[in-house]
Each structure stands twice: as C-alpha cells, then as structure tokens.
C-alpha cells in the first residue's frame, strides 16, 4: 500500500469504522451511566423551573466561569490548568468547527455547511493550542498533586488528543512530509481519537452536555437537597 492508497483508506473505511465505533461506544457509555440510576428525592421540591436551571448552568459553565478567573477555585489553585486548559478547549472547538477543511468534513456528514474562519486565524489558534497542550503536560509532570493523580490513561489521553493537533499543524504548513502522507496520518490520528473518546475520560466531549443538563435540572429545583 502506498501513501495515496493509505490516504484513501483513512478517509474511507477507517474513518467510517471509527465513526461507527464512536456512535456505538457513546451509546454504550450513556446507557451504562443512566442505568446507575438517580438517588430518590426524599424531600420533594417546593417549586421547580428546570429550563431556567439548565440555561443558567450552561451560561455559568460556558459563558462566565471560563472568563472570570476569580469565580472559580481553579485559578487560585492552579493557574496553568485554568489558562492553558481554557485556551486549549477554546482553540480546539474553533478549529474543529470553524476551520474550512473541518467544516467540509461536517458537511459531508450532515449535508450542510456554514461560514468559516480564515486560515491565518485558525493557524494562530492551532499554534496556541499546541503550546497550551505542552504547558498542560509540563504542569501535569511538575505539579505535586497532579503528578500523583496522573496515571497511564491521563498521559495516553494527552497523546491521543495531541496527535491530531500536531499532524494537522504540520500538514497546514507543508512541513517535512508529502501532503498525502501527513494528510493520511492526520485522518488516522483523528480516527484513533474517535475510537478513544467513548472509552476514556475524553468522553466529557459528549457527556459534559449530559451532566450539565442533569445538574441544571437539579439546580432549577427549590427546596431541600437530600
């Protein structure tokens, strides 16, 4: 198999299989979580506005906490986690959804597209995101508490997320490799990430939204929390 064939394999059967495993894996994990059950409400709520609770939770979680450092303990506890972690998540989401090449991937899956951000902006964000990931890795290796909390899976998570970022950046800059080689490796690394997400803590990529919603419903209730 030459690299042109590899690229075709990666864009075709490999990505298709990775998407199927991703869908099955997320579904599996979700059912497992739901099957754990909720604790019984021993004191019924006096009133409940679940929608407001959910909206407020999302607003705080995505709109306020990340941008006002003193609200969260994280900043005082570990500023690197707060800053680099925030930058990484912001960069990743913008690149994945607003990068032109990435939007075309979504378009091929969803059937519709949307406006995208110019390459130099995406490129700058990608560089910042890669630097943020390196900072997070160094932080994890040097922080006395984080180091003790980190096992193989934590470092594996970092590597699996880092590979698509790095290969994508190398590809965009035409460095060292022929285009089809690095393009194939980039797609293959994304396929690995897709398979990895459901079965690791990277599943927060999807479950964040389930847990936020669930918590929001709880927060919307007024009464005694059992």
């Amino acid at each position: 198999m030459n690299w042109t064939d590899f690229l075709r394999f990666a864009r075709g059967p490999l990505m298709g299989a990775a998407l199927v495993v991703f869908a099955a894996g997320i579904s599996y994990r979700l059912v497992r979580v739901v099957a754990l059950g909720w604790s019984r409400g021993r004191a019924p709520a006096r009133a409940a506005d679940k929608t407001v609770g959910v909206l407020r939770t999302y607003l705080r979680g995505l709109g306020i906490f990340p941008f006002i450092p003193w609200v969260k303990q994280t900043f005082r506890g570990n500023a690197v986690t707060f800053l680099a972690g925030g930058l990484f998540h912001f960069g990743l989401l913008v690149i994945v959804f607003l990068g032109t090449a990435h939007m075309l991937v979504w378009k091929s899956l969803l059937g519709f597209g949307w406006p995208t951000v110019a390459l130099p902006i995406i490129d700058g964000l990608a560089a910042a995101t890669i630097v943020a990931m390196v900072a997070l890795l160094i932080n994890r290796l040097t922080h006395p508490v984080l180091r003790r909390l980190s096992g193989t899976s934590e470092f594996a998570n970092l590597i699996v997320v880092f590979l698509p970022m790095l290969t994508g950046w190398i590809m965009a800059h035409h460095l060292w490799f022929r285009y089809e080689v690095i393009f194939g490796l980039h797609v293959a690394s994304v396929a690995l990430l897709l398979v990895w997400i459901p079965f690791s803590r990277l599943s927060h990529f999807v479950f964040y939204f389930f847990s936020r919603t669930s918590h929001g419903i709880e927060f919307g209730k007024r009464g005694v929390t059992p």
């Binding site: 298709g16 099955a24 990435h102």
Partner: peptide
C-alpha cells in the same frame, strides 16, 4: 465534495445500528 470529506461515510442506518 470537499477534498477533506469522508469517502462513503456511514449512513443513518449504520449509525442507528451502531447506537
């Protein structure tokens, strides 16, 4: 189709079966 698009992506049927 975009040059980065997935070639022959799994359809709704495959996705539903996987889920």
């Amino acid at each position: 189709q975009g040059q980065s698009s997935i070639i022959g992506p799994p359809g709704l049927g495959s996705a539903a079966t996987a889920v």
